[in-house]
């Protein structure tokens, strides 16, 4: 063994998933909140706030899937059959939501349909992702190198809870984004929506934090035995502090802080899950090392990734810079009327 690339790939994949969750998370959340916006003008603003950038965000999903497939093929082969239906449902929902961006602007007759498609697609895709997350945390039935459960193993109370939790989580991110990108009445509305979502998110985080150790003795032992409890205590403490700060920011004048606070809560949940499951990639059967692809493949991919990833991040950042500032309902690329 020349060099163990697994930790590096783990970090890369974790970063890709986290990037996806935050970025597509906020535009999916904006899509969910969209369903609760009544005025036509405000709807246009809400959609315009993510229209130029959503497609780049969504691509991280493909990137995460590909990363899992090529760096940890065994995990891909076991996990995908287990969450087959949630993923199919997510894809269907993403289709409706994705085309709604372009179809809604053009179409007046069916506008109500595409409005619903945008909201429904965003909410359904989010729910399905939450279900996948819940199924993942609970672990898979495995026989040898194959998934041994049924196609409906994901239908558990816990996975349904994480599905609903993610809807509120993404909505909180979306509310943070809208606070940043809008003004006046719409911004005040986003603050109210954000407060409601924050309460739901905190309830969900608490529920998952209690449920997970109760259902798995290993996880309970990891968190609650000495000296781990000393090292890990900061996780819940910092989460609580961020939650308090988020509540404060949603009630005051800050425009960027609510979005950052929501990202902070997602980071802490992410860290919490990582601590519970480490070093499993197929909970609770295969570790990252056992599921990894050959060294040559990982090395080859790594060289490409380390070149390409900074480039992608650079022009992602640039596109956010170009579309910085408050969004208005009448921007876009309207053709001059002749």
């Amino acid at each position: 063994m020349v060099l163990d690339l697994v930790p590096l790939w783990t970090i890369l994949l974790a970063m890709a998933v986290f990037h996806y969750v935050v970025f597509d998370g906020f535009d999916l959340g904006v899509g969910i909140l969209y369903g609760f916006v009544r005025s036509e003008d405000a709807r246009a603003t809400v959609m315009n706030s993510v229209a130029p950038i959503w497609n780049g965000n969504a691509t991280w999903l493909v990137f995460g899937g590909l990363g899992l497939l090529t760096a940890f093929p065994l995990a891909f082969a076991i996990i995908i059959p287990a969450v087959y239906f949630p993923i199919l449902i997510m894809l269907l929902a993403l289709v409706f939501r994705g085309v709604a961006f372009e179809f809604r602007f053009k179409e007046t007759g069916l506008r109500r349909f595409w409005d619903r498609a945008f909201f429904g697609g965003s909410a359904t895709a989010t729910f399905a992702q939450g279900v996948v997350l819940g199924t993942f945390i609970q672990g898979f039935k495995v026989d040898g190198r194959h998934f041994a459960g049924t196609s409906f193993d994901w239908m558990t109370p816990f996975a349904l809870l994480t599905g609903i939790a993610l809807i509120f989580g993404y909505s909180l991110l979306g509310a943070g984004w809208l606070i940043l990108k809008t003004e006046d009445g719409l911004q005040r509305w986003a603050r109210r929506a954000g407060r409601a979502c924050l309460i739901a998110v905190l309830v969900a985080i608490l529920a998952v934090s209690i449920w997970t150790p109760l259902s798995n003795a290993d996880i309970a032992q990891r968190w609650f035995t000495w000296p781990n409890i000393g090292f890990l205590a900061p996780v819940p403490v910092v989460t609580a502090l961020i939650a308090a700060g988020e509540w404060y920011a949603l009630n005051r004048q800050q425009e960027l802080t609510p979005f950052l606070g929501a990202i902070g809560l997602f980071s802490m949940s992410f860290i919490g899950i990582a601590i519970s499951l480490w070093p499993m990639i197929v909970p609770f059967h295969y570790t990252l090392w056992e599921a990894a692809s050959s060294e040559s493949t990982q090395a080859f991919l790594l060289i490409g990734t380390l070149f390409l990833l900074p480039v992608i991040l650079m022009y992602t950042a640039w596109s956010y810079w170009v579309f910085r500032g408050k969004v208005r309902s009448d921007i876009g690329y309207e053709v001059p009327q002749e």
Partner: peptide, 19 residues
């Protein structure tokens, strides 16, 4: 897989710059 990764990179570029 590397080909699909490269395709993903090209698609990223296309999506962001089309936006």
């Amino acid at each position: 897989g590397p080909l699909f990764a490269l395709e993903g990179f090209a698609f990223f570029t296309e999506a962001i710059f089309l936006g």
